[in-house]
């Protein structure tokens, strides 16, 4: 058992993978049209943060970067037991690549910190780079534990098990440290009734909500706008290819008996001659 830890978890709102997200003409995702959800990988980071809070009697702050609707995932995090949320939201951040994102977020962390433990998800479902977490650690000059599938906090140190090719590796780190949590970690526990109640109260009471969730801008944290957004992003998306229409000609045959399935598939294809009646 260690002293109370000050814990940060980074979470992101992504287009809901179950909705058919529209695409802009340039091939990027039309985020305004898509339904939104908490990045599924971040659920493991959230669970890691809440677990650390419980075992160290600590505090968890959630930080997200995105347009104003991203407040939704901060509220969701509070339902699960997060104590406070910050949203970095600034038009000048639009079209940030991982370099610019990590720059902006590390400025926020310097502004809000210090934190003993920072958790991030492995990657996001919209970018899939897995670069932001490690970049932030480098910028903050923190030890980083990537692909962490389990951990314990003993004697004021982090004992973590990482997934490596062909097995796993156990590492011990001092605090502060940044951990990217693999999706092999424990599933996020269900929201609590207290958390769900608090969030409904926050939605009724703007004043109280401001105490729990703050929206901050680049100016608040002293970040250089030149290093953010499109300007700060050396990544160039030269060209995107559509690898097939969503939905396409795929037909799902579900919830039928085997006999029905065989008949349906046989009727729709040219495999009829191979089906024995």
């Amino acid at each position: 058992m260690s002293g109370s830890l000050n814990i940060l978890v980074l979470i992101k709102q992504v287009p809901d993978t179950s909705s058919k997200a529209g695409l802009n003409p340039d091939g990027t995702i039309d985020r305004a049209k898509a339904k939104r959800m908490l990045n599924p990988f971040d659920r493991f980071a959230l669970q890691a943060a809440l677990h650390s809070k419980k075992v160290t009697n600590g505090k968890v702050t959630a930080l997200s970067m995105g347009p104003p609707p991203a407040v939704e995932i901060l509220l969701e995090a509070i339902e699960h037991g997060v104590d406070k949320g910050f949203l970095l939201s600034d038009r000048r951040l639009a079209a940030s690549d991982t370099l610019a994102t990590a720059y902006a977020l590390h400025k926020v962390i310097q502004h809000l910190g210090p934190f003993d433990l920072i958790f991030t998800g492995l990657q996001t479902t919209d970018g899939d780079t897995a670069q932001v977490g490690p970049q932030i650690a480098e910028r903050l000059n923190l030890p980083q534990v990537t692909y962490c599938e389990d951990f314990s906090i003993e004697g004021g140190k982090l004992h973590a098990r990482r997934i490596v090719e062909g097995g796993h590796q156990t590492v011990v780190s001092e605090f502060p440290a940044l951990v990217t949590v693999a999706n092999a970690y424990h599933h996020l526990e269900y929201k609590t009734i207290r958390g769900a109640r608090l969030v409904q109260e926050l939605q009724r009471n703007e004043e109280l909500k401001a105490q729990y969730i703050q929206t901050i801008t680049l100016d608040d944290v002293g970040a250089d706008p030149e290093l953010c957004g499109l300007k700060g992003s050396p990544t160039i998306v030269a060209h995107t290819d559509k690898v097939g229409q969503i939905g396409g000609r795929c037909v799902m045959h579900q919830g039928k008996s085997i006999e029905m399935l065989v008949n349906e598939i046989a009727a729709g294809t040219n495999i009829k001659e191979f089906v024995r009646q």
Binding site: Y190, I193, A196, R197, E201
Partner: peptide, 9 residues
């Protein structure tokens, strides 16, 4: 009056 809704509980 306040109403808290708890679907899923």
């Amino acid at each position: 009056v306040t109403i808290d809704f708890f679907p899923g509980f």
